[in-house]
């Protein structure tokens, strides 16, 4: 066991998979010689050589296209997109090629690709370094979408993602890259994709979230507890596949739900969560489902801390739900 932050846990996962499987390759902008803008690949090129860990030109469509071709021939590429905001030039490659290859080939050609990319705001990055694009990918059949909130999950989920035979979007919450610290085993381990974690127990209001806002939800749970309001906080960890069972189990006990994410609200992933609960658990619900999300504007540079869902907004939503 070592105390690690998320960056170190991601690094540890990449290191262990590069060592374990010669088909695993890591590439992207500045991941090789420089070791990644967030240092997630620090020293890996020196350790595994330029054939296994290499720098690419600034061409996201090229990076993902290369990964798709490699995966079609049986390798396990782990490309990095430096910021999720840069992933859109590769959108056609991801949605039209990577997500559909298994289906279009009648199951003959798999796509064991894991695209790692930092997501979310809170680092004063402005429009082009702060976005949360999970809704686009969660909507696209054929992709898995994973978003850890802490170092232990980051390592175990990333190893599972790399070993998975289908394409995985692995979204890393950069706001807590270094702030989230915890004990992580030094040896490799896996966590199943599609299992939520209960990170706070309570019987009054279910809070569903993932990534950086898990930490805001935990702060909210502390504040609410002081008011006698017990929040049941689920860290979804993976949006596709989704742990619907855990969600419905919690909702059946509490009858009240608050959904939290950073991405804009309209057609965000929270809409799917709310719609599922409204379809499958309407009769358990004591009040309308609340969503606390980014506002429906482009990501603001100066107002980012007002834009991002915080503990205060989560508590306010929980109170509204509880007093309905």
């Amino acid at each position: 066991m070592s105390v690690m932050n998320i960056i170190q846990a991601v690094h540890s996962a990449l290191d262990s998979e590069l060592a374990r499987d010669p088909d695993v390759v890591v590439f992207g902008e500045d991941v090789g010689r420089f070791g990644g803008v967030f240092r997630a690949t620090d020293g890996l090129q020196a350790k595994y050589g330029e054939d296994r860990v290499f720098d690419t030109p600034l061409s996201e469509a090229g990076i993902v296209g290369t990964a798709i071709g490699m995966a079609a021939y049986g390798m396990r590429p782990v490309p990095e997109i430096q910021f999720a905001d840069f992933i859109y030039p590769a959108f056609d490659q991801i949605v039209n090629e990577m997500a559909k290859m298994r289906y279009r080939s009648g199951g003959r050609i798999g796509q064991p690709v894991t695209i790692r990319t930092p997501v979310g705001g809170g680092i004063r990055g402005g429009h082009y370094h702060s976005q949360s694009p999970e809704a686009y990918f969660a909507h696209t059949p054929g992709l898995k979408v994973v978003c850890p909130s802490n170092p232990y999950d980051a390592k175990g989920l990333l190893i599972s993602a790399i070993r998975d035979d289908d394409p995985v979007l692995f979204l890393e919450p950069k706001r807590v890259y270094r702030a989230a610290r915890g004990e992580v085993p030094d040896e490799p381990y896996t966590l199943p994709l599609g299992k939520a974690a209960r990170v706070a127990e309570g019987e009054h209001v279910t809070v569903l979230t993932y990534g950086a806002t898990v930490h805001e939800a935990l702060k909210a749970a502390e504040i609410a507890r002081g008011e006698g309001l017990a929040l049941d906080v689920l860290d979804l960890r993976s949006l596709v596949p989704l742990d619907e069972e855990a969600i419905l189990e919690s909702v059946a006990r509490t009858g009240r739900v608050v959904i939290v994410h950073e991405a804009p609200r309209n057609c965000g992933f929270g809409a799917e969560l709310a719609a599922r609960i409204a379809e499958k658990a309407l009769l358990h619900l004591e009040c309308p489902i609340e969503r606390v999300a980014g506002f429906d504007t482009p990501f603001p540079y100066t107002l980012e801390m007002d834009y991002l869902p915080d503990a205060k907004r989560i508590v306010a939503a929980a109170r509204r739900a509880f007093s309905y």
């Binding site: 909507h139 596709v240 719609a275 379809e279 619900l285 009040c287 309308p288 489902i289 609340e290």
Partner: peptide, 23 residues
């Protein structure tokens, strides 16, 4: 999954909660 229908369902459950007789 995550289609525009999800947004419509959420807005309806949110603003018409006390009117809804069925999921």
């Amino acid at each position: 999954y995550g289609g525009v229908g999800a947004e419509v369902v959420d807005r309806v459950q949110s603003s018409c909660f006390d009117w809804l007789d069925a999921p």
